[in-house]
């Protein structure tokens, strides 16, 4: 399941819902992304996240579908927030459940790596001297390539 939302999410509740009623699940792996309060040596006061309604949901659904093709998963969840966020706020939650831990952990790692370079979201950081759009990082692209070249 995927959700793009303004409001915060409750990790405990979401993990519980993900496994509820499925006794075949042996483990859930999760990743939570938070707003940092720094970039390099500069302080971040907050950030605004923009997305592309329609395409973003499609891209997240495609990423989720790809994970299910590659691993034997019981369920997956991607929640990504948009709008105005402050340091310490939760931005993203990615979870994968499976009968065994290896698939769950690998799929969770894959989901966040692919999301970072394929899902249409853009961060604008509020720095001491004004706002700045975050530039895409080569490292993120390398992390995504790892999943492309390994098989």
């Amino acid at each position: 399941m995927i959700r793009v939302q303004l409001e915060d999410f409750d990790i405990g509740l979401e993990l519980k819902k993900l496994s509820s009623g499925n006794l075949g699940i042996g483990g859930i792996s999760s990743f939570v992304g938070l707003v940092r309060d720094f970039v390099g040596v500069e302080k971040i006061k907050g950030m605004t996240l923009e997305y592309y309604p329609g395409m973003t949901e499609k891209a997240l659904t495609a990423i989720e579908g790809e994970a299910h093709k590659r691993w034997a998963l019981e369920s997956t969840l991607i929640i990504h927030r948009y709008g105005s966020l402050k340091p310490g706020d939760q931005i993203v939650l990615v979870c994968a459940s499976s009968a065994h831990r290896k698939s769950a952990i690998e799929a969770c790692h894959f989901l966040i790596d692919w999301l970072k370079t394929k899902a249409p979201f853009w961060k604008c950081e509020e720095l001491p001297n004004g706002s700045e759009w975050v530039k895409a990082r080569d490292l993120d692209i390398e992390q995504t390539m790892k999943w492309t070249t390994r098989d």
């Binding site: 997305y51 931005i91 970072k116 899902a119 249409p120 979201f121 895409a136």
Partner: peptide
């Protein structure tokens, strides 16, 4: 859908322009 610059377009298309994505 992501496309390359060679992709054909027609009058009913929705065409979006944006910088490399930075979510997550």
């Amino acid at each position: 859908e992501y496309v390359s610059v060679e992709h054909p377009i027609s009058s009913n298309d929705e065409i979006a322009f944006f910088p490399p994505v930075t979510g997550g």
